[in-house]
Design a protein around this nucleic acid. Structure first.
Lengths: 114, 114
DNA sequence: CGGTATCCCCAACGATACTG
DNA sequence: CAGTATCGTTGGGGATACCG
C-alpha cells in the first residue's frame, strides 16, 4: 500500500482521541469502572469542567459507558465499551514507546529549551 | 503493573506528537525523504506557516532530519530519523484502528450531530 | 458527589502578502 | 521553492462559584 495518497486511518483516530486529555483519560479507566472523582485524581491537572466535557464526548462516541447508580450522594462511574477496549489496545504501543523514551525526550526538550 | 498510578508513557508521546497535525505529517513522510512542497500537498488543509512550525518542532525533537541541498531554487527535504521510525511504528496500530473503524466513527459522530 | 454556569485567556491555528 | 512577517480568529482549556 502506498502511504502517500489519500487519508490514512489516523484522521479517524484523531477525531476520537484528539485533544489534550482523552488518551490519558482512557488510560486511567482501562482497569475497570472508575468513579468520576477517581478519574479526576488520576488525571493530574485536569479541571472538572474539562473532564466532564471529555468524558461526555467519549460516551457520545461509544468509547465509554456512563453508569449512574442512582444514589445519594451521587455515585457515577465510567467504563470502556468493547469498542473502547480496541482503542486502548491500539494506544498501547504509543504508551510503551513513551515509557521507553522518556529520558531521551526530556533531554531533547531541555536541549531545545522548550 | 498497576496502570492507575503515576504517569504512563502517554504523557511523553503526547509531548512529541501532540497537536493537530504531527501524526499526519509523520505518516506522510514515512516512505522516505520528502520535500517541503510534497508534505504540504499530502497533508491536506495545513497552512505553510503551521507546517513549518510543526516540522521545526519535530526536527528539534530528533524525530525528523532536515536536509538543505543548497540549490537555487531551494531544495529541502525532511526524513525520519531512526528515533522517528520507532515512533511511526508505535503509531501504526492507531492508524489501522482508524482504518477499520472509519464507518463506525462516522456513524456515531453523525448520530451525535457533531 | 457529581456535576452546571459563567467568565476569561491565550496558544494554536488560519489567511495573506512578501522575500532570498 | 521554501520559507518569513504580520495580523486576525477561535475554541480548547482554566478559575471560580453555585446546584440537586
Amino acid at each position: 500500500m502506498d502511504t502517500t495518497d489519500g487519508p490514512c486511518g489516523l484522521d479517524v483516530s484523531l477525531k476520537v482521541i484528539g485533544g489534550k486529555w482523552k488518551p490519558l483519560i482512557l488510560y486511567h479507566i482501562q482497569d475497570g469502572p472508575t468513579r468520576f472523582s477517581q478519574v479526576k485524581q488520576r488525571v493530574a491537572g485536569i479541571s472538572e469542567k474539562v473532564l466532564i466535557q471529555q468524558l461526555r464526548e467519549l460516551v457520545a462516541m461509544d468509547v465509554l459507558i456512563r453508569r449512574d447508580h442512582q444514589r445519594v450522594p451521587p455515585m457515577v462511574d465510567y467504563a470502556l465499551t468493547p469498542f473502547g477496549k480496541t482503542l486502548v489496545e491500539a494506544l498501547q504501543p504509543l504508551c510503551e514507546w513513551g515509557t521507553q523514551n522518556r529520558a531521551h525526550v526530556a533531554a531533547t526538550l531541555a536541549a531545545a529549551s522548550g
